[in-house]
């Protein structure tokens, strides 16, 4: 039940992109086609879960034990950067087809604030154990996926609509994202 609540809260109520504003750069950057949005979601889910597990263990057993939690920001970003590199090298060797699908998105993930944000939120939450953090990370990745895939579907339709000259491109996309966020606010009462 507790896991169920974490999942619903992370996907719908506090959607990582539309309510918490993490990962907005890829949300706007790679959402012009549904296929690239799906690829990005896969890469983010993979790295987010892995990074949260590693940083959680680091926080609990290294930083807190040594009393140097102020090193959190530096440690986490370095861990995430090297993890992304590692995943890239391993994927290339183990599964070239998956590497082809996710490859171009992986380097972008280092500067994806959603990954660092979820890692920090999981590490700072005192109620979360390792299992909760993992579920939390996965649910947030799903929430990211839902938001970006819905948005890219809407953007594909925007190409067919007549938009006033000044609003073409980014401005109208942002307004559409705002309406999508408005729709997600409807979930606010659930949890």
């Amino acid at each position: 039940m507790e896991y169920f609540l974490i999942i619903i809260a992370a996907i719908f109520v506090n959607n990582i992109v539309l309510a918490k504003f993490l990962g907005v750069c890829p949300f706007l950057g790679v959402s012009s086609k549904i296929s690239t949005a799906v690829g990005m979601t896969g890469a983010v889910a993979f790295v987010m879960v892995l990074a949260t597990i590693v940083t959680y263990l680091l926080q609990k057993y290294v930083l807190e034990t040594l009393g140097i939690t102020y090193m959190q920001t530096i440690t986490f970003i370095l861990v995430i950067a090297s993890l992304v590199q590692l995943v890239e090298i391993m994927l290339k060797k183990v599964s070239p087809s998956l590497y082809q699908a996710l490859g171009i998105f992986l380097p972008l993930i280092t500067t994806n604030c959603a990954v660092l944000g979820v890692a920090i939120m999981a590490a700072m939450n005192k109620d979360f154990g390792l299992m909760e953090s993992t579920v939390f990370a996965f649910a947030n990745a799903v929430g990211f996926g839902i938001a970006i895939i819905l948005f890219s579907g809407m953007r594909e339709h925007l190409d067919l609509v007549k938009v006033p000259e000044g609003m073409k491109g980014v401005p109208i996309s942002l307004v559409v994202a705002g309406l999508l966020a408005l729709a997600f606010m409807g979930f606010a009462g659930i949890a």
């Binding site: 942002l174 705002g178 309406l179 966020a181 606010m185």
Partner: peptide, 8 residues
């Protein structure tokens, strides 16, 4: 002040 307003 809420999320949608930021985007719009």
């Amino acid at each position: 002040v809420l999320a949608p307003g930021a985007f719009i």
